[in-house]
Structures are given as structure tokens and as C-alpha cells.
Design a protein around this nucleic acid. Sequence first.
DNA 1: ACAACGTATCGAGATATTTCGATATAATAT
DNA 2: ATATTATATCGAAATATCTCGATACGTTGT
Lengths: 115, 115
Amino acid sequence: MAVSDVTAMFKALGDPTRQAIFEFLCERCCPVAVEETGEVHQVQGVTVGEVCCHVTGSDKFSSTVSFHIKELRLAGLINAEKNGKFMICSVRREAVDAMLAYLSALPKSDSSLCN
Amino acid sequence: MAVSDVTAMFKALGDPTRQAIFEFLCERCCPVAVEETGEVHQVQGVTVGEVCCHVTGSDKFSSTVSFHIKELRLAGLINAEKNGKFMICSVRREAVDAMLAYLSALPKSDSSLCN
DNA sequence: ACAACGTATCGAGATATTTCGATATAATAT
DNA sequence: ATATTATATCGAAATATCTCGATACGTTGT
């Protein structure tokens, strides 16, 4: 994952609404199942409606939340796949790992010579 | 460090110019010295002029870079202290640690029960 | 076929961010 | 005292982001 990708992730997470959505998805996303074929897929996720409900407190669809979900997806922080008439959202763990790796790799004060 | 602080840090780091400034400071910031008194202070840092030079490629002061340095400081990512006619900038390691802690503490898919 | 549902997208207004030049200020050098 | 240097701040233009209502679209139920 390139540095520019991490920039987009930080930018996306830098909005309170999106951060709330992302944390909600982190809490709600469930284990993955491994088929006999070895294929791994998401067992469960959260619908856009559930996210709207959690974020706005109302049970009505919110185009604003939909907008933020799209931003999170474009930044690579979440996945969203259609299931019937629902969109199921889930966290991309690689994204979290990429941000952790980026921050961990920043030169530390005592790891480099001083001029 | 509160969650909202981390949000501001992510937002600040989500801009390419500020990320470049931050990385530059990470590379350049040097060890701290501990006085006999036990007081710890920054031995060295980087002047605003050096940051401008690195970011813009020119040796002229840039009010844009100055603006971004201020944003980084307000987000808690860097320190800036005056030394004579220079402003010395340095990274706040606690900020990096706070972001790492936040990301590390996000619930993992296999750490929570599934509904 | 039609209605209801879940979600996306569009358009517009409100607000925030970014950039840059001009001016201001404080510290140093002459 | 005056000039120079390093930096900050202001103002304005350009651009981006956020929010919300309206409309559109695909899916499901009747």
C-alpha cells in the first residue's frame, strides 16, 4: 500500500462522521469464513441503513451518511458489496494495517544520527 | 489523548503538503538532552525556513507552508518554539503514539462475538 | 404489473480549506 | 537608529467539502 493511499485514509478518518461510521463498522464486522475451497469471504457486515440509524439516531436513510460511506470506500478503508437490495459494508483490515505500518515506520528521534 | 484529538491529527495528516512536512520533521528531529537538573529539552529541530525550502524547493519563505505548520501544531502533531528570530519545529512523538494506540485499539474482526 | 423498500446520485446552498501576495512584527546586524 | 532577516497574519480568490432535499434505480413483495 503506497504512501498516497495512507494519505487518503488519514483524510477520510479525519472527519468525525466518517470516524464514527468506521468505528461502528469495526465493532460490528464479524469473522470471515473459509470455504473448503480455501476461499475466504465476509460472513456478515452492516447495511447502509444500519449505519444511518446508528449515526443519525433516526431510522431514515441519510444521503449524507451515504456520501461518507462512499468516501470511506474510495479511500480504501471499507468494502461495500451489494446483497439483494442491501449494501453490506465492512472494514478493510489491510487499511488499518497500512496506517499502522506507516506510523510505525516513521523515523524515531533516537534512531537517526544528528546531522 | 482523547479520540477527538486523534481525529484532528488524522485530518492534519490527510493533506499531502502537511504529510510531507511531518515526514521531513520526523527525519530531521534529533535526540533530546537531559540536563543535570533533570530537565529535558529539544536539542535540535528544524526552522520554518528549512521546511519551506524542503517543501517548495525554493529558499523563499512561504506563507502557505507557514499556514500548514500552524495546522500541524494546532492538531498537536508538532511543537514549535521560538529561538531568537527562528521558529524551531519538532515532532510530538506522543501524537504518533496516540494514533498508533487508537488504531491498535480498534476492535478486530475475530475479537468480538458475532451478534 | 405495481407498490414498497433500500440505496445512490444530482443539484444547490452553506461552509471550510487552500493558496498567494501584501503587510506587520520581532529579533538581529550594521 | 536603521536596515535586514525570519516568520506571522490578513484579505481575497479559487477550490473543495459537507449537508440536505429531490429524484432515480434496482430489488423484493403483492
